[in-house]
């Protein structure tokens, strides 16, 4: 009973709280990083150096008026943000945050579920989120949201193909679809898959930027053309859900990148013996640090690169990334066959 119900529930609560707090502080971090890049200070008023800013933001969003357009499809309009947010959060179910730890002499694995189709589960869950965006754009019954929603979904579907193809090469390298097995395969190999599959990492990262609608691929919400894209008509709490989902998605793709390419919970150089003293650091701390480094990369890129044009975005996805990903799979498979003989 305790193993079946209580421990998973506690884990779910911890992960959920962790994700929500991370989202809140990611928003602050994003504003701060942008500010530092542009030689500004960023939020400074609420608390020392603005550390309480997220709480003020949340309070503001809670008390704002929640407007539903008169001609909107009310049920779908309310459902859309939920459809976007739920997949972003349930994707955390299969992410391994750390190695097995023992609490009160009881071995507890630091993941909620270890599915034998874990990686595909993440792909599946991510593909559901598209609906929220299209339906949000459609149900607003207004032109900018509809165009933004169509753009966003076309972009998501295009880049999903490239990202899923990079997963195939990682699966080939590790020989398993389970997230835990992928990490242990990196331990057995003695090297992170970032070094085995550098091209896959590059394609994954570009695809992840596009899938989370981040700059330089933030066309669905390009202010100059589409006001705010698919969530133009949203306000108050429902807008906050879209906002939350975007950042939760960023955390998911960063956590997946960490697990697949940067060795998950493993310490740096897992096979080098004289770095053994690094093992005193708990495994989940390595995971969190690596995930935050990937997240920082997202912010850094946003502050550095200008936005793509829509035709350039589609050309990059279909004519560059997907062929490259397929070539990468072929080479990986050939090398794997050659090595196994």
């Amino acid at each position: 009973m305790i193993d079946l119900l209580v421990i998973p529930l506690i884990k779910i609560v911890i992960v959920l709280t962790g994700v929500l707090i991370t989202v809140m502080y990611m928003v602050l971090l994003e504003r701060k990083v942008q500010a530092w890049v542009q030689v500004r200070l960023g939020p400074m008023r609420v608390g020392p150096h603005g550390v309480l800013q997220p709480i003020a933001d949340v309070l503001k969003l809670f008390v704002k008026e929640d407007i539903t357009p008169v001609r909107a499809d009310k049920v779908v309009f309310t459902l859309a943000p939920i459809i976007v947010l739920v997949p972003a959060i349930i994707a955390f179910a299969v992410i391994p945050f750390g190695d097995q730890v023992s609490i009160f002499g009881k071995p507890v694995p630091l993941h909620i579920a270890d599915l034998n189709v874990g990686l595909l589960y993440i792909v599946a869950v991510a593909s559901i989120g598209v609906y929220g965006i299209i339906l949000g754009g459609w149900s607003s019954n207004s032109k900018y949201p509809l165009l933004g929603g169509l753009r966003a979904s076309a972009q998501l579907i295009s880049y999903e193909v490239a990202v899923t193809l990079t997963f195939v090469s990682v699966i080939l390298a590790s020989g398993s679809l389970s997230m835990v097995d992928i990490v242990t395969a990196q331990k057995a190999n003695g090297v992170w898959f970032a070094f085995v599959q550098p091209l896959a990492l590059f394609i994954y990262f570009v695809g992840a930027l596009a899938e989370t609608n981040r700059s330089p691929f933030d066309l669905p919400e390009a202010e100059q053309e589409l006001v705010a894209g698919f969530h133009t008509e949203y306000s108050g709490m429902r807008f906050a859900l879209f906002f939350l989902a975007e950042y939760a998605n960023m955390i998911v793709v960063s956590a997946v990148a960490t697990t697949l390419f940067f060795g998950g919970w493993l310490r740096p150089f897992p096979s080098v013996a004289f770095l053994h003293f690094l093992d005193v650091v708990p495994t989940w701390i390595w995971f969190v640090v690596k995930t935050f480094l990937v997240l920082y990369l997202f912010l850094w890129i946003r502050a550095t690169l200008p936005r793509y044009r829509y035709d350039q975005l589609m050309r990059l996805g279909w004519k560059v990334l997907i062929p490259l990903a397929i070539a990468n799979i072929i080479v990986t498979a050939a090398v794997k066959v050659a090595l196994s003989d």
């Binding site: 189709v117 595909l120 792909v123 599946a124 869950v125 593909s127 598209v130 899923t164």
Partner: peptide, 12 residues
């Protein structure tokens, strides 16, 4: 496996 494929290909 089919369950996941069902969601990815059909639903997604």
């Amino acid at each position: 496996f089919l369950a996941v494929i069902q969601v990815v290909v059909y639903a997604g």
